[in-house]
């Protein structure tokens, strides 16, 4: 078992006949780390996440070249559900809960790949992490608040005990207090379950507080990589990306 859980090598991705959305992106994620992926709107974050999870094709994109290995296994040829089966879960952007189903049913969809005997255990662990979901377990998910829907999307991804969790744009449309609360909880979960996390954020200031290392995407390429502390102290990083992150965060 190597120390690297996700290894992306020179990945280039395009949509239709337009130019490349990702141009030769390489980075890797060590096991048990919390890694941030930053970048402005349109920098290619969502494309990168889709390439990793296998949702690229249904969104009209295709891999031009490069490779993605998860836990030592190349995954680009696998359909999305097989990747989840390997332990690569995601909490998608915009939360995307099953809005006409109850909270518990939403979680059970995430638990469907577990053996039946472990489903109840999974459910109760999620309720332990997010007690609010337990209170509302019979409610229709579409009627939850934004924060609760975000918790539900995270719970649905975590219930199968993935090795790597991709969290896409968690802070989008949520109040700052709530964002801090949920990130705090995610940090605790990562430590207690040993889950590796890749956190995609537009709001750099929030992300820097909770991640160990960051990679910044800039117009389809990695523009900066470093630890969170280095990044917070780096003048170049601040000028180039954080200023923009701040604007976006305020907007």
């Amino acid at each position: 078992m190597s120390d690297t859980i996700l290894d992306i090598r020179e990945l280039s991705v395009g949509y239709g006949r337009k130019g490349l959305a990702l141009d030769s992106v390489s980075f890797s994620i060590p096991r048990h780390a919390i890694v941030g992926l930053l970048g402005a709107n349109g920098a290619g974050k969502t494309t990168l996440i889709r390439s990793i999870t296998g949702l690229l094709k249904i969104n009209g994109g295709h891999v031009v070249s490069g490779s993605v290995a998860f836990d030592g296994q190349p995954v680009l040829g696998l359909p999305a559900h097989k990747r989840v089966g390997l332990g690569l879960a995601q909490s998608p952007e915009g939360r995307m809960v099953f809005s006409r189903m109850t909270v518990e049913e939403n979680l059970m969809v995430g638990a469907a790949m577990l053996p039946r005997s472990r489903q109840d255990e999974g459910l109760s662990s999620i309720y332990r992490f997010f007690p609010r979901l337990k209170e509302r377990h019979r409610q229709i998910a579409g009627l939850l608040s934004g924060g609760e829907q975000q918790m539900l999307a995270l719970g649905r991804a975590l219930i199968s005990r993935p090795k790597l969790l991709l969290v896409d744009e968690l802070s989008l449309g949520l109040a700052p207090i709530l964002v801090n609360e949920i990130y705090g909880e995610l940090g605790r979960i990562a430590r207690s379950l040993g889950t590796t996390m890749l956190v995609v954020e537009q709001n750099a200031h929030v992300a820097l507080k909770y991640v160990d290392t960051i990679h910044v995407l800039d117009r389809g390429s990695i523009g900066y990589s470093g630890t969170a502390e280095e990044a917070a102290g780096s003048e170049a990083m601040k000028r180039a990306y954080l200023g923009e992150g701040q604007k976006e965060g305020a907007a």
């Binding site: 359909p79 559900h81 995601q90 998608p92 969809v109 469907a112 991804a157």
Partner: peptide, 25 residues
């Protein structure tokens, strides 16, 4: 049933079901 649940999830939201590991096809 479990399959019934997954079918409802798929009908509810295709992409979310894929993200949650459902074999949508």
């Amino acid at each position: 049933t479990r399959v019934g649940l997954l079918m409802r999830a798929t009908a509810d939201r295709h992409e979310a079901a894929m993200a949650a590991g459902v074999n949508v096809n």
